[in-house]
Simulated scan of single mutants.
Amino acid sequence: MVRYSVLDQSPVPRGGTAREALQNTVKLAQLAEQLGYHRFWISEHHLETLAHSSPEVLLPHIAAHTSTIRVGSGGVMLPHYSAYKVAENFRLLEALHPGRIDLGVGRAPGGIPLATAALQENKGAGGGDSYPQQIEDLVHYLSGSSDETHRFRGLKAMPEIDTVPQLWLLGSSGGSAGLASGQGISYAFAQFISGQHGGSVVKSYQRRFKPSILQKEPQALAAFFLVCAETDEKAEWQAKSMDVQMLKMARGETGEGILPPEEAAEYQFAPYEIQLVRENRKRMLVGSPETVRSQLLQLSEEYGTEEFMLASMNYYFADKKKGYELLAKAFS
């Protein structure tokens, strides 16, 4: 049985506002809960066209306006922050909403180099890659480990509670999968970022998984962009907005939000852009509910996983809601 979840990035469409985008994110979380989606994750970005700059601030608001769906970050960009502070933020969230909190972390910058420089302004220039150490520290702090060899031995992440937020490592490569399996934590493969088919990566993670203090069995999901409409033709019409947006972002044009499909329909692809669109479509599931359901069932076999995280970037919020409704009905 395939289990499906929602990733939302609070996209700000052209002509829209960040406040409206954030309000729509809360509405979408409530709808996802009503429709039976398993998780609702939000991302961290430092861009004008995506309103999620601080998942740890928005998450408690979403959790307070829902009651059963798991909510989490997809994800916190860990290199910008202290692992100890991230652990405390999410332990506090777990204390407020026990059994419902996911902590997804990644290493991508989530924005332009200038934003990264500002976020890491006061971090020492120690050199090397500290990300694996940060993941190890998170496991230590979240689990309440009493490891006497840890450099901050005796330090506990507060508050002290009897449940633990579920830790996920987000990535799109074998390196991140190896880190997740070695630390014994859950792994989310972000195909919507790279377009690389991750079946072999996820299966490698599952084979190499080493049980940890946080979990005994591997747990993996794969994430895709989603455009679902009543017919394949209508879905293709809606998806062209994303096709054009991805081309613009590849050219460094990040200041304008996604175009309405009526305007995107008029865009004429240059010959070289057609191949780029084909490559970008590897990041997306596009079609009617029956088409997308068939794609997910096939991907479930190829990935060896039963959970998928789906991110919709439709220009019209009504189209986004409709897509999730149609897919839920197809799997009901």
Rank of each mutant, 00 (worst) to 15 (best):
M1C: 15
V2H: 13
R3M: 11
V6N: 02
D8Q: 03
Q9S: 10
S10W: 08
S10L: 08
P11N: 07
R14E: 13
G15H: 11
T17V: 01
T17W: 03
E20D: 08
L22S: 12
L35P: 12
I42Y: 00
I42N: 02
S43Q: 08
S43I: 04
L50E: 11
S53H: 14
V57Q: 06
L59C: 03
H61N: 15
V71R: 05
P79D: 03
P79K: 01
Y84G: 11
V86Y: 12
A87E: 09
N89C: 06
F90S: 00
F90D: 02
L93Y: 00
E94N: 04
L96F: 01
R100L: 00
L114R: 11
A115L: 10
A117Q: 13
N122E: 15
Q133K: 09
I135G: 00
L138M: 08
L138I: 05
H140M: 07
L142F: 05
L142K: 05
G144Q: 06
S145L: 09
D147M: 13
A157Y: 10
E160M: 14
E160Q: 15
I161K: 06
P165C: 09
S172E: 12
S173H: 07
S181R: 08
Y187S: 04
A190K: 13
S194M: 08
Q196G: 08
S200Y: 14
K203Y: 11
R207M: 12
P211Y: 00
P211I: 00
A223K: 07
V227A: 06
T231R: 03
T231Q: 07
S241R: 04
D243Y: 08
M249I: 09
R251G: 11
T254R: 15
I258Y: 04
E266S: 15
Q268F: 13
E273R: 12
L276E: 12
M284C: 13
L285R: 12
S288V: 03
P289T: 00
E290T: 05
T291F: 04
L296T: 10
L296I: 13
L299C: 04
S300I: 02
E301I: 02
Y303F: 00
K322M: 08
L327V: 04
K329C: 10
F331M: 03
